[in-house]
Structure formats: structure tokens, C-alpha cells
Computed example of a mutant assay.
Amino acid sequence: MRKSIILVLVLLLVVGSVSAAFAVDKQQQVVNTTRFKKDPPWVIGYDIYWLGNTWSAQFAEEFKQAASMYDQLIKDTVITSSEGSVEKQIRNIESMIAKRVDLIIISPNSTSGLNSVIKKALRANIPVVLNAVAIDGDEYTTFINVTDRALGKAMAEWLVQEMGPKGRIFVINGLPGLGVAEARWEGAQEVFKKYPKIKVVLQDNGDWSVPKTKRVVSDMLAAYPRIDGVWGDAIGHGIMEAFEEARAPFVPFATPSDNNGFLKYWAKNKSKVNAIGVTKPVWLSKLSLDLAFRVLQGLPVFKDNYIPPNVVTNDNVEEFVRWDMPDGYWTYSTLTDKRAKDLFGE
């Protein structure tokens, strides 16, 4: 138990230092959490926003693994699943409020649709930690994420660097309506607006699904077999497989992916692939729990906390690929190998 408590304290210090290192604007706003201070063990409510792809499944599993390490601090975890539905997420949060959980962690399925129920939780003196997805306004306790807008911008900047200041590109967006996908594309547009000779010839949603992304890109290539680049908020090998099956020349691909299946394909085909993966780590859910511990101890936290994305390139892809792990696995992870293999059925 002594070792576990020391580990918790180390993790809390790490979160504090990360927050300080990336503090700007609301990130500089310090939240006084003394009103939420309670003695452990605590009951933590955690809503799984969506399980529509392997990233979201591993994101949830990272939280479960982290929570299992702290039985001396956590009495119970109330875990619900919203399946991408705003209405269901509202009901799940209301259920947690009724159960008087000590804290709620959510990844909002809407930037504005949950504001009222979050306010209801705060009025009940239940702090709310936003995990990897932002909302409009500031009616929440604290927030942890990478900067999705900056992530999308970095992808676009790399693409311009690789293809030059003019050309025709495909754009593959993520899940429509989710703030993460919207922020990434907004960041990319900041860059593309500076280069009027870069033309988005086709744009569609891949829904962060490999089969749908492959189908969308295949249809695009049928209409425009010659293209200069792809900005894809997508799991990368859906894009690459579409190009390969169409026998289209490979172009620079900008993605947010460190998915192992994508990295395996990329590493095997380095001679013809020019890509970047500006990634959002699945262990953000673990950091949300670390922030929760700070709040429930009455320790100060920053309103918004950001960590830098990991960046995979042709130069370092072999450092991140895991040949011994399933294709569904996301390699920038803290999961044990056994837990990851159990999750993905291998």
C-alpha cells in the first residue's frame, strides 16, 4: 500500500508539472477545489463516450487499468456507456448525480448539449473532469487534452511543407458533430487559407473508421486519380490501402494516427510512403483520473491542461511499431501487453 500511495503522489506531481509547462490563457486559471475535498476512498463516475473504433476502446481500457491500481483510494467506479448519443450521456450523468458519486469524468459527445447537466452536477457539489473533448463555456471543474486545433494545424503545416504551396488535396474529416473533429479541421484551415493555390478538391467524413475511410478515399480516387496530398483525420491505413488498390501514386499523407496496423503497413513500405502521425495518446483517460485525485484532495488544478502530441515520421516509425502486438493496438500506450492483447482478442 505504501508503494501505491507513493506512486499516486508521483503521478499527481507529474500532472501538475505538465499543466504548468503548457499553461496559457485558461490554462493559467487556477481552480480552487477545496469545496470538493473528501477523504478517500471515493466513488468515481466514468462515462465511455463511444466505442466505435479501436482508439476509443483502448482509451476506455486505459482508464479501467489505472483505476484498478488504486483500490486504497477508489471504493467503486460507476462506469456507463453513451454510445455516441448526447441524450444517453445526459441520462448517464443524471444517474451518477442521483447515485451521489464523488466525481464525474466525461468525454462530451456535444460541445454545448451537456452544459445544463454538467451545471446540475456542480450544483450538487460533484466536480466534473472533461477528458479529451472540450465544451463551450467554462462550466466544468478541469479539462485534460492535447490541443486538437493545434494537432490539425500541425498536420496541415507538414503537408504544405512536403507538397509545396500549391496542389490538389483530399480532406478526410473525423466523426461529424464531435468537437475534436471540428477543432482539428479548424486548425488545418488556418494553414490552408494562407495558400490559395492549395485546392481541396474533395472532402468527406471517414468517421474514424478504417473501412469507411478506405471506401471514401477509393471513391475520391475514382473521381480524381491524380492528387498531391491528403489531410486525413483518420486511421491511416484506410487511406493507404485505398491508394494501393487503386494503383494510384502515393502522395504525402497527414494523419493523427499511431495505430499499430497503420504503423506496420507504413514500416513495411517506407520506400514509397511519406506520412506523419501527430497523435492523441490513449492514456489521456489515465491523466483524467490523476486530475480527479487532485480535485478530491482539494489541491489546486489548472482549468485547462494540455499535453503535447506524439509525432511519428518516416524517420522514427520503426521505434513505435509493435510487430508483436495486434493491429488494433495504439502504440503510444500505458496498457500492459496482456491487457491490450485481451482487449483486441489476440
Score class of each variant (00 low, 15 high):
A20F: 04
K270W: 04
P300H: 02
M96G: 11
L11V: 01
V278R: 00
Q27E: 09
G113L: 12
E182D: 14
F22Q: 09
Q161T: 14
W208M: 13
G229W: 01
T313P: 13
V317W: 04
M69R: 04
G16Q: 12
L151C: 06
A134M: 07
V129Q: 03
A292P: 13
V251L: 00
A248S: 14
G206E: 08
G261D: 07
S333M: 07
K272I: 15
A181L: 03
G236L: 13
F262C: 09
P40N: 05
G187S: 00
K64F: 00
D102W: 05
Y49C: 01
N316A: 08
K119I: 11
Q29W: 04
R91N: 15
V200W: 04
G177W: 11
T279L: 06
E319R: 12
K286Q: 10
E94G: 08
D258P: 08
Y306D: 11
N125G: 11
V31A: 03
D290P: 02
R215H: 01
F302R: 15
V15D: 08
F192D: 02
K199W: 01
Y332H: 15
Y140E: 09
G328M: 00
L11I: 00
Y329E: 03
Q89M: 09
D39L: 14
K272A: 10
I239P: 10
K341L: 05
I44W: 03
R149F: 04
P249C: 02
S68T: 05
E319M: 14
K120W: 03
I44F: 06
I172L: 14
T111A: 15
V312M: 09
R149Q: 12
G45T: 05
A275E: 14
K212H: 05
V160E: 09
G229K: 00
V216K: 01
K264A: 02
E346H: 09
I118V: 15
A60R: 02
F36H: 08
V251N: 02
T255D: 03
I118F: 13
K193Y: 10
D71I: 01
T141N: 05
V14W: 04
A267D: 14
K120F: 00
K303E: 08
K153W: 09
G261V: 07
I74D: 05
Y46R: 00
I169E: 01
